[in-house]
């Protein structure tokens, strides 16, 4: 199957069941809300090394947030609800509570499961913290030097999908990067997804395992153009000079698929030779998101 001149391989992205939370960060200005969001989502590219994956979902106007201030919606993914709770407490505590004027709210109000976050962070108030319960919502007011940090007592957690991906194969770095940038921009517009890697794009795609026992993952040699002549196996034809990957996590499988579909359409064109996806033969992940099926939907 082709989109314009770009071949789309008949394969699937192997994705995993994860747990996720949506966090609404607000602040006095949209710049400070974004600053806090960028800090909170930093170093959260992969559960392999960061214990969670996190990214900015979208910016929110004042009329879309609980406290009627400008905000940013971010999503956090981890392997379990407990992991989500722990990572939220760490990242909100260090990157949001510390940021001037911010407040932090649960963005999954309909979730069946909740994890304690404000309930943990309240102890920073050293006995001066105060809770407020209004219409079923419990909020903590934690005194800080600038005023008060406001945070929901608990955050909703829901089942989610992590590890949707596209592999973009091009002739050279320049054309492949351009295609990936366009794809990432298109994918970010889909609600309920994040692209956790820097700029949404990852160059160091990995395979599970390594010849070194301590490493859970190592370079995806079959997709490294520089190893085409030496690796045990290559997936690259001779015209491929660069491969970039876009990883997408989403609150629903459908949103991950839609982001991948948008990404393929946006990336395809003269500069891109082939689009494929990473999988492990269907042996590890709970989801198989088939590229051709997405394009036919």
């Amino acid at each position: 199957m082709h989109i314009q001149t770009t071949e789309v391989t008949d394969t699937f992205a192997e994705a995993f069941k994860m747990s996720a939370a949506r966090v609404i960060i607000t602040a006095e200005t949209d710049q400070w809300a974004m600053t806090a969001a960028q800090s909170a989502t930093g170093f959260a590219t992969s559960v392999i090394g960061c214990r969670c994956e996190m990214g900015i979902e979208t910016a929110l106007s004042a009329d879309e947030t609980p406290d009627q201030r400008p905000g940013v919606s971010v999503l956090l993914f981890a392997g379990s609800a407990k992991g989500v709770g722990n990572r939220l407490a760490e990242r909100i505590g260090q990157s949001v509570m510390t940021c001037p004027t911010t407040a932090c709210f649960n963005g999954l109000e309909g979730a069946q499961e909740h994890v304690a976050v404000g309930e943990k962070l309240r102890y920073f108030g050293d006995g001066y913290q105060a809770s407020k319960v209004l219409n079923g919502r419990k909020i903590w007011r934690i005194p800080v030097m600038e005023g008060e940090f406001l945070i929901d007592d608990a955050f909703g957690v829901q089942a989610a999908v992590g590890g949707g991906n596209l592999l973009l194969l091009g002739k050279d770095m320049s054309s492949t990067l351009s295609a990936a940038e366009v794809a990432a921009r298109a994918m970010r517009k889909v609600p309920g997804v994040i692209l956790p890697f820097p700029g949404g794009i990852v160059r160091s795609g990995s395979k599970p395992g390594s010849r070194y026992k301590a490493l859970p993952a190592s370079t995806n040699d079959a997709y490294c153009p520089t190893l085409r002549g030496s690796a045990a196996k290559t997936e690259l034809s001779e015209e491929i000079g660069c491969v970039l990957e876009i990883v997408v996590d989403g609150l629903e499988e459908a949103s991950v698929g839609e982001a991948m579909r948008q990404g393929m359409h946006a990336a395809a064109g003269e500069g891109l030779v082939q689009i494929t996806a990473g999988n492990y033969g269907g042996n590890l992940g709970q989801y198989q998101i088939k590229l051709h099926a997405l394009l036919q939907s």
Binding site: P66, D67, K132, L134, N135, G147, L150
Partner: peptide, 12 residues
């Protein structure tokens, strides 16, 4: 100061 939490109550 400007207590943000009051917005929840006043809107309610």
């Amino acid at each position: 100061y400007q207590p943000i939490f009051l917005r929840f109550y006043l809107n309610y």
